[in-house]
Design a protein around this nucleic acid. Structure first.
Lengths: 160, 160
DNA sequence: CCAGGCAACGTTATATCATTACATGGAGCG
DNA sequence: CGCTCCATGTAATGATATAACGTTGCCTGG
């Protein structure tokens, strides 16, 4: 389960593990994990939240990288295409994947208070959506499953 | 089930029924279903697909209505707030609800070929997403559930 | 009646998100 | 070398969405 995003944890483990997995995957699949792409993923790995493309751009600039919009969007396109990152449609923003390399249909829990995002999983063909699709002969190619609400921590803070 | 969106049907029934239901709901709940709001919903009811805000604006203009962006966005905000329409996050566009007045957690099947959109339903608390949320104490307030793919008709056309 | 509040609407400007188009440069390869 | 391919640099623009402020019309209490 993706609860870790909302909990205090040794985040360097998330970061290191992901970078290693992505490195390995790119090696195996002959993908160019270039400096810009690496830098963008590193930025996104800093926190379990969604990053706007222009927010990433600002970070790139502050690190001395030249950065017009296509620079960020091209890196994000690569990362999303290979499932190293996902787009959160509700936020028009992007988040690093918590277990890259595995093909999956991600689902997200977005806390509207602390803005952290947890990645969970669904079996697209099962469940109500799959049933509805099957019933009318609709062929699902991609799913967007996002829930907005309050994580346990923020909920407790509100209730006190 | 929302299969009707993808099928040939007497669409005037959809339109008339929806407008009557919205009229009744607004009457009951003391909501102002003003000419602009009515016009926007009428436009959206023309087809079972998602409409961009600027597309709606163009239609308003062509009907002689003054129409700067806030005109469309304010009408859409009203319609979405009261569940007479929904936003399709994947498309950054809006669609008329197929059964207004009932509070519900809609799910959408979006055909990438004919661009029609069907509205299905989910029980947000049940299902995998609800289970994942419950497991980590996440309180869901809103869900975005959208599937992109091919409807039966377009699929058949492709296969031949 | 009329003053005040309120919701909707008109309008300008601007913020935010994303892409097109074309030029440049380096790696691999015959 | 000359070619192709892919990644990158950069300018311009397109597409989506909101802020801010003024105006209008209606309702309501005094």
């Amino acid at each position: 389960m993706g609860s870790i995003s909302f909990e205090i944890h040794d985040h360097s483990v998330c970061t290191d593990k992901t970078m290693q997995e992505v490195d390995a995957y790119c090696e195996t699949h002959k993908l160019q994990f270039t400096p810009i792409r690496r830098k963008v993923l590193t930025i996104m790995l800093e926190e379990h939240r969604a990053w706007g493309a222009y927010e990433i751009l600002d970070r790139l600039r502050s690190e001395g990288q030249s950065a017009q919009p296509p620079v960020a969007y091209r890196a994000l396109e690569f990362l999303v295409k290979h499932r190293f990152a996902h787009k959160i449609e509700r936020l028009n923003a992007f988040i690093a994947c918590t277990h890259p390399g595995q093909h999956h249909a991600p689902a997200f829990l977005i806390c509207r208070s602390c803005e952290k995002v947890a990645e969970a999983h669904t079996e697209p063909s099962s469940g109500e959506l799959g049933a509805a699709a099957e019933a009318i002969g609709f062929h699902i190619e991609r799913t967007v499953i996002e829930a907005v609400g309050l994580c346990a921590t923020c909920r407790d803070a509100t209730t006190q």
